[in-house]
């Protein structure tokens, strides 16, 4: 356990030093602020709670950006160190390979959590500063949105480590990471939509649709954050989530499985990798 903390600490230290933390926090904060003020323009100040609008905007932002940041951080973690030669020295120390991997994971997760919390927190703080009235339920939804954004980040960190342990070169790992991002964030939903259109109104079995939604972590995330409450009404995801039998705990479990399984696989592959 101590070894995991030592590695995590070093990753955070390095992230602070090479400005990763600063860059991602500023990026998320800038986009979150832009979206929350632009997003509130069409709705004006009547009717809906303004924080709910922000939640919808930021959830969409998360789906695009957080997986990308997570993959950028993680795709290099193993193959990059192996290529630069630092991995050889590290592994000669009294530390297990799984400890190296988990330490890096927690370090990167801490960086991601910090950036998300500060970046999105800035949007909420700005909203408060304008004197908007925000209910307790909206605050809860906002906090849970941040929590799930970090969890989505964890999923893509784990996938990134898997590509990093499987690839034999950095450039390959980078290529695979971009492919993973394109697939889950863009292509998958388009294909799903195309499939539904092709079905020409024939009812798709609910079980199949559920499976397809859980099979993509970004869809599971979307369903959790946009599927219920005011956000559901605003985003139009409420319709889907009424059809689906997937509850929030099931979707959460799916996201956790999406983290644990790739990370476990990466750890297994890494333990057999020749250095």
């Amino acid at each position: 356990m101590t070894n995991i903390l030592i590695i995590a600490r070093k990753e955070i230290q390095e992230g602070l030093r090479n400005r990763w933390v600063l860059a991602t926090t500023l990026l998320l904060a800038a986009l979150a602020l832009t979206l929350s003020f632009l997003g509130s323009a069409p709705t004006g100040n009547v009717g809906v709670n303004r924080l709910d609008v922000v939640i919808v905007s930021l959830s969409s932002l998360t789906i695009f950006l957080v997986p990308l940041i997570a993959l950028l951080l993680s795709h290099d973690a193993v193959v990059g160190e192996a290529e630069r030669g630092t991995m050889l020295l590290l592994l000669s120390y009294p530390i297990g390979r799984s400890e190296v991997l988990f330490g890096k994971f927690f370090g990167h997760l801490a960086i991601l959590a910090f950036s998300t919390l500060c970046g999105y927190g800035a949007a909420a703080a700005a909203l408060m500063a304008t004197g908007a009235q925000i209910g307790a339920a909206s605050w809860m939804a906002f906090a849970s949105m941040i929590g799930y954004s970090v969890l989505l980040g964890a999923v893509f960190l784990a996938i990134g480590y898997l590509t990093s342990t499987l690839a034999s070169e950095r450039s390959t790992a980078g290529g695979i990471a971009i492919g993973v991002w394109l697939f889950f964030v863009l292509i998958y939903d388009m294909a799903l939509l195309g499939g539904l259109v092709a079905a020409q109104g024939h009812a798709v079995p609910a079980g199949l649709l559920d499976l397809l939604l859980v099979a993509n972590p970004t869809d599971a995330y979307r369903l959790i954050n946009l599927g219920s409450g005011n956000a559901g009404a605003l985003s139009g995801m409420g319709g889907i989530s009424e059809q689906s039998r997937l509850s929030v705990p099931v979707l959460t479990a799916a996201l956790i499985a999406w983290t644990v399984l790739p990370l476990g696989w990466a750890s297994f592959v890494f333990s057999r990798r020749e250095v």
């Binding site: 070093k10 230290q13 030093r17 020295l89 000669s92 120390y93 009294p94 530390i95």
Partner: peptide, 28 residues
């Protein structure tokens, strides 16, 4: 055991002192 790899390399962003402290912690 002490090991010095051929053409040793370190994490570029950290200082020498931080680097040595990191390895010292790993070796307790």
């Amino acid at each position: 055991l002490g090991y010095l790899p051929e053409s040793v390399s370190f994490h570029m962003a950290l200082t020498g002192r931080e680097t040595l402290a990191f390895y010292a912690r790993l070796k307790r």
